[in-house]
């Protein structure tokens, strides 16, 4: 019967009180509304956080909590890297890489900075290039290393160095004997011109057995040193053509099997030969005899 008694004579009156009505209207004013529903809560939140953080203990606690949480996440076995596999590197380089990389396994995936590691590895002298990748399932850090291939051996004041074809330093060696197959170059700045030296050697293939090495003179031109201390002085410009010319001369006239110490082609227009001291006397005598005959 409640629905029926809810007629005009009913004592129940759903009217709001005057003050609740005023409160509602006040709360409907835009400024107050924004203040109450956004301004005050935001301020209270900011103030609460500020008060909490003003205590050193709380800050430490938070920091600790953060690091613990981080540890929990980063030390999860699924994201751990347990070992490093290096491919394409000789034992020495392998050891070097293991030494220089600043990682202690097992290490978390999140602590590994692959680009930086790659830079370190490539920074090693014998390493030409390196590809690093993480295989997350197995937890392995794979490093594929391309080593530099020594192309020449460079003798200088400090000792013997192996250089690759670009002239980059590979490593220092104690003795030439271990690297008989590599051509020898010498002279200050020879390492910067390895490519040219190698080209010269290719051009000098017919003399291959006799060539002892190349000397870079005055940081501008090459000398080819042959076995019995014969020296072919090549010009600054077009040394390869000049060498080919000398070889042609040798093949035609047996130039290099004569008593000559130096074939001087530094000025291409005015080639000069230097004879052995004894041979010079012989030459004079012969010339004199010829003149005498006349």
């Amino acid at each position: 019967m409640s629905a029926m008694s809810d007629y005009r004579e009913s004592r129940h009156d759903p009217a709001p009180s005057r003050w609740s009505y005023r409160l509602l209207r006040m709360m409907l004013t835009p400024f107050l509304r924004r203040l109450v529903f956004f301004g005050i809560p935001a301020f209270a939140l900011a103030a609460g956080i500020g008060v909490y953080l003003s205590e050193q203990d709380n800050r430490d606690k938070l920091r600790m909590l953060y690091s613990e949480a981080r540890l929990l996440l980063t030390q999860h076995p699924e994201v751990m890297v347990n070992l490093m596999a290096i491919e394409g590197a000789s034992d020495m380089v392998d050891q070097d890489i293991r030494e220089v990389l600043p990682v202690d396994f097992p290490i978390s995936y999140f602590d590994i900075d692959l680009p930086q590691m790659r830079e370190i590895i490539v920074g090693l002298d014998p390493v030409k290039d390196a590809v690093l990748q993480l295989s997350m399932g197995a937890g392995i850090l794979q490093i594929e290393v391309t080593e530099r291939v020594p192309a020449a051996i460079w003798r200088h004041r400090g000792g013997l160095e192996l250089l690759d074809e670009t002239g980059a330093y590979v490593r220092t060696v104690a003795s030439r004997q271990d690297h008989q197959d590599l051509p020898l170059i010498a002279g200050i700045g020879a390492d910067t011109r390895v490519k040219e030296a190698l080209a010269l050697l290719v051009a000098g293939q017919p003399l291959a057995k006799r060539i002892r090495g190349l000397v870079y003179v005055g940081a501008r031109r090459w000398d080819v040193v042959l076995d019995n201390n014969q020296r072919l002085m090549l010009p600054e410009q077009g040394p390869i053509e000049t060498l080919e010319r000398i070889i042609a001369l040798d093949q035609a006239e047996d130039l290099l099997s004569r008593d000559i110490t130096v074939v001087d082609f530094r000025l291409v227009d005015r080639p000069t030969l230097r004879l052995v001291g004894r041979a010079m006397e012989d030459f004079r005598n012969i010339t004199f005899l010829k003149l005498g005959d006349q």
Binding site: A15, P16, R18, S20, Y21, L24, R25, L28
Partner: peptide, 18 residues
């Protein structure tokens, strides 16, 4: 007055506007 206030309040509440 109470009846008018009831109507006005519920309408304003619904409209969310003063």
């Amino acid at each position: 007055e109470r009846a008018i206030r009831t109507a006005l309040q519920s309408a304003q509440k619904l409209a969310n506007v003063r």
